[in-house]
Amino acid sequence: MTEPELELFELENYIKDIWRFLPVPILYLNPLGMIIDAGEMASALFNLPKEEIIGTRLRNYFDSPEAIVSQEQESEKAGMALSREAVLKRGAPVSISILARKDEAGELIGFFVSLTDLTDIKTFQRHLEEKNKQLETFNAVAVGREIKMIALEKEVNGLLVELGREAKYG
């Protein structure tokens, strides 16, 4: 191999290693929204081998394909569109960020897409909301009870004073 070819070969290996390492699901799309490359974690998220993901359209994995198309278009105009929430067809909520790639002439050449599975976060969020609701209910009951206690103590003090005795509750 010539020196430029060797450099290209090393660059290819470098890029392959990055794709293998990426701890977050990452995809690369062509301008038509077709998946051209996928990191290993994307396989895990879609529950499909990488080779089955490549050649399919990103929008087809979602409940609302039009939202994905809209985000692709937004990122093309603005350069990127970050942290939009969507739901996969299998029910998992995800956060999607899209970066549009353009060549020197400004023509769109592809998109990088990162996906974050929000399932655990949403479950934890629902759990916290439930707990908060229980605490609010308990708090309302506890405060109500306290107010009632104060009122009763006042009443008792009043009755004691009427009887010529000393108030009991300070």
Binding site: E12, L32, D37, E51
Partner: peptide
């Protein structure tokens, strides 16, 4: 038919085929 899915170079070149 499977070859483009396995080749990094081919998939990179696919960026030209829009």
């Amino acid at each position: 038919a499977q070859a483009p899915k396995f080749s990094f170079i081919i998939r990179t070149l696919l960026g030209f085929f829009m």
